[in-house]
Design a protein around this nucleic acid. Structure first.
Lengths: 174, 174
DNA sequence: AATATCCTTTACAAAAAAGTAAAGTATATT
DNA sequence: AATATACTTTACTTTTTTGTAAAGGATATT
């Protein structure tokens, strides 16, 4: 279960632009600020441009800038532009082993899990904007304390899984 | 954001063993049932054995079987054995671009998001056992309706993000 | 108009992940 | 003991992802 390089770096570049207050930045400026090579930044920004998340001005005084205000860009849009969701439409065909279609395609309990995770993930991603990440602190810190509850749509069946305890944080390099 | 092949197929093999009622299965039996090549199944089961999730009997009448009862094996243990968590300890070093350490290592708002997601994921994974997947239906169907609430530990700050609506399900191949 | 700057496109190279092959070791049956 | 079965180990090949290179096209300045 991993965040891909394109997703990680692409999001970083967008965030950098979001922090730049509507001013455009050149590929080399972005490269320097993010510690990435110019050709690689070029590739990332091209993906973002084709997805409509950034605009480019060519020629002298050119550069990249966000296509929309940071408050209007959700992480959902960003992640969908940079990579596939956890459970993509191609998942079952991709992981079909030696066959053309997965032996579990008719009835797959694992897929149910991934689908649930994908939904949870997506709704969280949709709820966070680039502006939230720029302002940092308040909005974001709150997510660290999230826990899961069953929904109200099917209340009689979920007492056993409500209020799942959170595990300890990972130890990070920094 | 993706589930790796090792994670997907490894989990499938464990689930197959869980459904086999404590009886051992040979590599070729597993391969046939899962539509995977024997050498590949061999690789997967070796990873699982070294992680202590399955036991192997060698020689004639040999085979693999779960090391613990399905009720006692969580998806958390499984996923941790087969791959890295969403935010691993090596994340910041891995995605450091051209430098030795990431330029954001001191203060990274993206990391906060991944950390939160990782915690949510992990607590869900810890709450699901192989037995839950085997029995299917009730326990699992419930997850599809999950939604997120803020926790009680910091209640005054999270009204704005409580009750996030779920997006529509992905269209799958089947 | 020439030029320097900066984005665009296509193709290629390197690294990582996925998947295969083959020779080796252990065990039960004959 | 010989043999067939089945796991184990190491090395290798293929595919995918990541990252680089280079030539081309657009725009503002001089």
């Amino acid at each position: 279960m991993k965040v891909t390089a394109i997703e990680e770096y692409g999001l970083r570049c967008l965030l950098l632009l979001a922090r730049n207050g509507g001013e455009s930045m050149t590929l080399s400026e972005i490269g320097v600020k993010e510690g990435l090579s110019v050709p690689y930044v070029s590739k990332l920004l091209m993906i973002l441009r084709k997805a409509g998340l950034v605009k480019a001005d060519r020629g002298r005084n050119g550069g990249y800038l966000l296509a929309s205000a940071p408050q209007r860009v959700t992480l959902g849009e960003v992640m969908n532009s940079l990579g596939e969701p956890l459970l993509s439409s191609g998942h079952c065909k991709r992981y079909s082993g030696e066959r053309d279609s997965c032996v579990h395609s008719a009835d797959c309990s694992i897929r149910s899990v991934w689908r649930s995770f994908d939904r949870i993930f997506s709704s969280l991603l949709e709820s966070i904007t680039l502006a939230d990440l720029v302002s940092g602190g308040d909005r974001l810190g709150a997510f660290g304390d999230f826990r899961l509850n069953g929904s109200a749509s099917n209340p009689q069946q979920r007492d056993d899984v409500a209020e799942v305890p959170l595990r300890n944080a990972n130890t990070l390099a920094t």
